[in-house]
């Protein structure tokens, strides 16, 4: 799901956000702070964290990232890289290097039994939320006038301007939505596993791999890519614990070698 946000940014703005992983961690920390200060359930914290992140996304885009857009890919890349370093060290300064985790109470261990398999509620919930989020993004993208505007800007920025679309505003909105989605991912991450200030780059890499495996600009493909990575990691972990992460990367490289356009390239229309 982190990948879905990433995919959206890639798709609309052709911008690569290296700090994306760190924004996931940022939302996890925000969630942690909200939970710690109000004592509410982590999932409820979404109500606060998602809009906050969306607002951060919008103003970040309007304030900084819009200035970097252009034909040259270097400026956005380097600026987000700088952001990434700043965020990581802000986490370090603010929350220390110790891994932290959000407590979701009984939800974490609860499980249901389906056909003899015991499935945790939390993974199921995560999966369910991922599908709902992607479905609504898909709907937003293809069935609403906002989505139409996003696609128009993504196709041809100049001409979209002629239609009265302010691309700066559109990019801001896209980034806002992307970070809102990121916030959901971040909270779920914070409930599921512990995280520390440097957890972001691993997230970024996996999100990116899922996007490439799934095919650029295809949100369902991104979900499938995420599943493939997850499966590869689980298999790798069975062979040898040290192989868990590596096998995910290897799966990615194999896909890249055989089908560089991704397993499910974008279908037009």
């Amino acid at each position: 799901m982190f990948a879905a946000g990433l995919s959206l940014i890639f798709g609309v703005m052709r911008l690569v956000n290296i700090a994306h992983g760190d924004f996931i961690v940022l939302s996890a920390y925000l969630g942690l702070t909200v939970v710690a200060s109000t004592g509410m359930h982590p999932l409820l914290a979404l109500i606060i964290v998602v809009p906050t992140m969306a607002a951060i996304g919008y103003f970040l885009q309007r304030g900084i990232l819009n200035q970097t857009l252009g034909d040259d890919i270097l400026p956005p890349l380097l600026v987000t890289f700088g952001l990434s370093v700043i965020l990581q060290n802000l986490f370090l300064a603010g929350y220390s290097a110790d891994p932290q985790k959000m407590d979701a109470g009984a939800l974490e261990t609860a499980s249901v039994s389906v056909a003899g398999l015991s499935l945790g509620i939390l993974p199921l919930l995560t999966f369910g939320i991922a599908i709902v989020v992607i479905a609504s993004l898909q709907y937003m993208f293809f069935c609403t006038s906002l989505g139409r505007a996003f696609r128009a800007v993504s196709d041809n920025q100049d001409i979209a301007q002629l239609m009265g679309l302010n691309k700066r505003h559109m990019f801001g909105l896209a980034m806002g939505i992307a970070l809102g989605v990121t916030a959901i991912a971040g909270i779920l991450l914070g409930i599921r596993t512990s995280f520390d200030p440097t957890a972001g780059s691993a997230r970024l890499i996996f999100g990116f791999e899922a996007v490439i495996i799934g095919g650029l600009g295809n949100l369902w493909g991104t979900l499938a890519g995420g599943i493939i990575l997850g499966v590869a990691q689980t298999i790798g972990a069975k062979i040898d614990p040290g192989w868990q992460l590596l096998s995910g990367h290897i799966a990615f490289l194999i896909v890249l070698a055989i089908r560089p356009q991704g397993l499910f390239p974008r279908v037009s229309g």
């Binding site: 139409r148 001409i159 301007q161 239609m163 037009s268």
Partner: peptide, 27 residues
């Protein structure tokens, strides 16, 4: 900016048509 001018009531049919390829005709 172009979008502000468009809002004032000026439209351009660009050279080479430049439709949005990922949008349908109606869109």
């Amino acid at each position: 900016r172009a979008d502000e001018i468009a809002a004032l009531g000026l439209a351009l049919v660009p050279e080479g048509r430049q439709l949005f390829p990922s949008l349908s005709v109606e869109e």
